[in-house]
Design a protein around this nucleic acid. Sequence first.
DNA 1: CTCTTAATGCAATTGAGTTGCAAATATCTT
DNA 2: AAGATATTTGCAACTCAATTGCATTAAGAG
Lengths: 135, 135
Amino acid sequence: MAEKVKRRKTQAKTAIVDILKQSTQAMTHQDIELALDGLCNRVTIYRVLDRLVKEDLAHKLVDVDGVTKYLACRDCGENHLHHHVHFSCEQCGELTCLYHVVPKFTLPEGYHLSEVNFTVRGDCPKCSATSSAAE
Amino acid sequence: MAEKVKRRKTQAKTAIVDILKQSTQAMTHQDIELALDGLCNRVTIYRVLDRLVKEDLAHKLVDVDGVTKYLACRDCGENHLHHHVHFSCEQCGELTCLYHVVPKFTLPEGYHLSEVNFTVRGDCPKCSATSSAAE
DNA sequence: CTCTTAATGCAATTGAGTTGCAAATATCTT
DNA sequence: AAGATATTTGCAACTCAATTGCATTAAGAG
Ligand SMILES: [Mn+2]
Ligand SMILES: [Mn+2]
Ligand SMILES: [Zn+2]
Ligand SMILES: [Zn+2]
């Protein structure tokens, strides 16, 4: 029943994967478009990103403010679950994975977990350093 | 420096607060519009909701899929922090607060927390019950 | 009741994301 | 290498949530 689609290695896909891999933080569609500098069409970026997510090469995250961002899949293991915390900086706006911060919790009876999205907002080390220095 | 704005008690605001308070789950703008049944303009709903959030009478949440939802503020204490888990059902789509589920975690040095958004996706008790009964 | 200003309605606009379709191109087959 | 085939792309048009400007309405203070 599962349609087997033969993926192709294209210029746009290669470029986008490279850009995502080079970034330490999650990127918006717009970030990527800017980085690509006209290499391909806006729509193509959306479509490539969709494919990357399907192929488990990238993750699609929604930030606390509703902004959709993409992240290269690194060492996520089998299921590509993000059990760790994502940190969203209120000052510089960057969204990063805190791979080592894995919250502990227990769901009540009857709830069945399939995915987790734990985002913490605040000031990142960089920004809290500069803002406290300014005082 | 803080602008003191004198809020007014209007028909739209009262109705929207009532609707939010009666709901056990977070509601979208559309849900609210439907419940209001033409009582006021679409834009007014957006503006009232913004005000309610500013006045700490409601919370604005973004679901895992990017859908914005609103929730009446109940016993949130002083700072209105949602340290508990929000559960988002993949089947019925409802988003609810699991007030008793508060994850434990520790941020690394240098990170300063101001807000938390922890959403768990999966099947709610209602939906997991009916789907296992169907097998 | 009168005055001030917050709140509303309406029409137009923005911006992210999607869709249909024809043209381009990656990959497979001879 | 050339041809066949299905994927990928570009473009234009579209959808849908949310925002904005502005004239009008209506809280609520005095
Ligand atoms: Mn992954
Ligand atoms: Mn609250
Ligand atoms: Zn920062
Ligand atoms: Zn459910």
